[in-house]
Design a protein around this nucleic acid. Structure first.
Lengths: 300, 300
DNA sequence: ATTTTTGAATTTAATTATTAAATACAATAT
DNA sequence: ATATTGTATTTAATAATTAAATTCAAAAAT
């Protein structure tokens, strides 16, 4: 089979449901009506009707589609569970790179990875092609792909890019009016940081999540598809890095919480200079942490 | 044929060249040596040797590969001209969108476009997948692609992203030491702008090129793969826009030259505040121009 | 007569199958 | 002992195939 008939199978099942809600002897609506309701092409509707006819559930002739008997559970077709989405693939891929310390320069085997991740090879192909825009992977002249990213250079440039975008977000944020929802959000975040700080010893693992939430809130101010897209990659990599680098986690997180609090307080005070300085300090240290982690993992 | 044998054909031709530089009766080097020299696998080398043998140019038996006679031009294999690169595809695609005023929401036909652009369908697929990262195209749930970009929203967000990146470049530029090559480059650019200004009436078409050069010079200061990648898209779109929007071209370019000159002079004076103001002014007007052009083309 | 619906054909796109090319490994010659 | 070749296996690019969408004309219903 060249292409899966998942679409047909799920449409057939919904059609069974529609029949289930009708009385025997009733007429099914027109093909176009069914197609619209099921969000599927008429080709599929006709295919499903044909099957209903041959299963003696419906008598189909021209525009007469009479329900002969009610469908039973046994009539349903089984569906193959759909392959993971691009986001899931992205996560799996980064997870794999970090979990096994895949070094830069490793050549990627599309066939093997597609088996490993449970996706069709061409999906992975497209995914890699997308990543190549960010320089994380590269196409080799002879064909195939190599993992070129996750070097120190990559981390430095990613961090600097992050710095540019986030400083811009800070400037935008401080220009917002007093009645904007951001201020209450920031106050909530301040509270959460302080709570985590008091029992950090037992809950220090929770910082990764809070860190993500804080940066997302600040960056969320900038409504720009390019910025949003870039931040997706940035947060993905920084988040995964947090997940995998367990050295000095308590100390690192304690320091980061202080930096966040300084930054939040400065913003709540509407102090531009102090906010920028605090942001700069945190982002620069964050970069150093990422770099050190890469060194520790021999990914340099 | 599943896969083209372009690689084999070009390798065979290079092998003919190698034979041409040898004397009749001489021995060809080992397969591995040839493979390395031709940057190709041994499989191809062996295939080519087999063909040379069956053409009675070389007598091949085991590790004896004796040149029997010199190859002639007629022995060469014809090469299919290789498909356009990703960059060329990118240009063609944008060209097509702007030339025919393709409106946002148009569904893109991969099969037809791949014929039109002379690339394999899966190359185009990958290309679109890459563009989808920038939100210029989107994948439809039913399959296929739609052109979602080139709306006013896209132009606004692209311009604002450009502003963030370019202002950052300006700040970096002004921090460079006096002996950096950027200063002489800027002086050259100033000269070029002034020359173009004096006979603008006859040469105003040349501004598009100079504009590209100027922005590339400023942005070139930031050595960051993410910034570089983003700027590729930005300059592509702004450049194409210049090419296609011919309304008030002379006036627009005259104004832009003045803005550039103010900006260049401020930078040459190492005046941070004046440089940022000049940059901001130019970039904001540039955004308005792009927006107006889109309105004129009914792409909103 | 006009609109709606269907039948059939065409076009498009997702996936498999096939082939070219690369790689790995054992066998042989130097 | 080393270099080179012969053969088998693996991988990736492309063609072929099939599911599904779309189009258009004919038929039925209003």
């Amino acid at each position: 089979m060249a292409r899966t008939d998942d679409r047909f199978r799920s449409a057939y099942n919904t059609l069974l449901d529609i029949c289930g809600n009708m009385e025997v002897g009733e007429q099914l609506p027109a093909e176009t009506v069914l197609a619209n309701r099921m969000e599927v092409s008429r080709t599929i509707v006709r295919g499903a009707l044909q099957k209903l006819d041959s299963e003696n559930l419906v008598e189909w002739e021209g525009r007469r589609k009479t329900l002969i008997r009610k469908p039973e559970p046994s009539h349903r077709l089984t569906l193959a569970d759909n392959p993971p989405s691009t986001e899931e693939l992205e996560q799996q891929f980064l997870d794999w790179i970090l979990r096994f310390d895949i070094p830069a320069g490793t050549s990627l085997n599309v066939a093997q990875l597609s088996r490993q991740f449970g996706v069709p090879a061409h999906s992975l192909q497209e995914f890699l092609s997308g990543l190549s825009r960010f320089g994380l992977v590269e196409r080799r002249p002879k064909g195939g792909w190599i993992l070129s990213g996750f070097t120190a250079g990559f981390a430095i440039e990613l961090s600097e890019f992050r710095l540019v975008l986030e400083m811009n977000a800070v400037r935008h944020l401080l220009a917002l009016p007093d009645d904007h929802e951001i201020w209450s959000k920031l106050r909530d975040l301040k509270q959460e940081h302080e709570e985590l700080k008091t029992d950090l010893a037992s809950r220090y693992h929770d910082f990764s999540m809070l860190d993500g939430k804080f940066h997302a809130t600040v960056n969320g101010i900038v409504k720009n598809r390019f910025v949003v897209e870039a931040q997706k990659l940035i947060s993905l990599i920084f988040h995964y890095h947090y997940m995998w680098d367990k050295r000095d986690e308590l100390e690192r997180n304690a320091a980061a919480i202080e930096e966040h609090l300084d930054w939040i307080n400065a913003m709540l005070d509407r102090d531009v200079e102090r906010s920028e300085a605090a942001a700069l300090k945190h982002l620069r240290r964050s970069k150093e942490t990422l770099l050190n982690s890469l060194k520790g993992h021999q990914l340099v």
